[in-house]
């Protein structure tokens, strides 16, 4: 069977997925991340490799470490929306 796009999230990646979930859905955490990313990531106990991948917005590296692709996608979008680095037309 070919590799699935969405796979069972390994338990070892729970802290990373928890951090991405918070970036996506927790406005206060996202604000803390924007102010001090290292300190925010430390709240979730991310290891150095995961921290580097997240700081670099390196999707492939994050997914390889067990991150859920959708969480990577939406966490990144929400951070860009909050930073104002992308413009949106709201309907």
């Amino acid at each position: 069977m070919n590799e699935m796009h969405y796979r069972f999230p390994p338990a070892s990646a729970y802290p990373l997925n928890r951090c991405l979930f918070a970036l996506k859905s927790d406005d206060a955490f996202r604000a803390r991340f924007l102010a001090d990313a290292k300190a925010a990531m430390a709240e979730h106990g991310l290891d150095a490799g995961s921290q580097a991948a997240l700081l670099a917005s390196d999707r492939d590296a994050l997914v390889a470490r067990g991150a859920h692709p959708y969480l990577v996608f939406m966490a990144d979008l929400r951070v860009r929306m909050a930073r104002g680095t992308a413009t949106f037309e709201y309907f």
């Binding site: 796009h5 969405y6 999707r59 492939d60 997914v63 859920h68 692709p69 959708y70 969480l71 990577v72 996608f73 939406m74």
Partner: peptide
């Protein structure tokens, strides 16, 4: 659609 994957 394939959000977050290399097939996006």
């Amino acid at each position: 659609h394939y959000p977050g994957t290399d097939r996006y």
